[in-house]
């Protein structure tokens, strides 16, 4: 029973650590989007009046990349808290396991010396933790959803970019490449977020 509980604690910690690692990857991708947007801006400037419609698009893509980076930074703060929480919980589970071993050795004496009540206290703290952990992981899930909203906007703008690129004459292929780069980056972020959400939601489901 103890090892099963400890495994659960380790899983919580590993899930949060995985989310942190994946979010780190997202910041890299969003920086790449921002770079593509700046590249597109330079191409549009060279294209002059042929690519006038591209200017607001590049600004918008850059804004989306910045927003994603900021959101990820915020989520990382929450994920770090969640990670500390998960470590504390794993330690607590280990403690409870070892204290229960002592309880078994002591038999009836465990009631008299106050150990049985101490175990109840520790179990109660663990339950409170699980409620708090659930709240905190829901916050992270919510923040991940907010990134998804930003990505939907980016997807729409990618479609518009392709349309605008057809009007850019000699620069059409350059702008299409940029639009494609942004589109692929958005897809990558969506995949990463999906995995992160899966990690967190699996733990939420198991807890219930």
């Amino acid at each position: 029973m103890v090892s099963e509980e400890m495994d659960e604690g380790a899983k919580q910690f590993l899930a949060v650590a995985s989310v942190q690692a994946e979010l780190f990857a997202v910041t890299h991708i969003s920086k790449r989007i921002s770079l593509s947007a700046k590249n597109a801006k330079a191409i549009a400037a060279r294209a002059g009046s042929q690519a006038l419609g591209f200017h607001p698009i590049t600004d918008f893509i850059d804004d989306v990349a910045t927003n994603i980076t900021l959101l990820v930074e915020e989520i990382n703060v929450d994920a770090l808290r969640l990670s500390s929480f998960a470590i504390a919980n794993r330690n607590r589970m280990k403690t409870i396991g070892r204290v229960k071993d002592a309880q078994e050795t002591l038999g009836l004496r465990a009631d008299d010396c106050g150990l049985t009540n101490k175990i109840k206290e520790l179990e109660s703290t663990k339950e409170k933790f699980l409620i708090e952990y659930g709240r905190k992981s829901s916050d992270v899930l919510e923040a991940l959803t907010e990134i998804r909203t930003q990505l939907q906007a980016a997807e729409m703008i990618c479609t518009t970019s392709r349309t605008e690129a057809t009007r850019a004459g000699d620069f059409q292929s350059n702008l299409e490449v940029v639009a494609e780069e942004v589109s692929q980056a958005v897809m990558q972020i969506k995949d990463v977020l999906q995995t992160s959400k899966l990690h967190l939601s699996q733990l939420t489901v198991r807890r219930r």
């Binding site: 070892r98 071993d101 002592a102 002591l106 465990a110 150990l115």
Partner: peptide, 8 residues
């Protein structure tokens, strides 16, 4: 666990 039990 053993030290705790022995102490208690």
């Amino acid at each position: 666990s053993s030290v705790l039990a022995a102490t208690l």
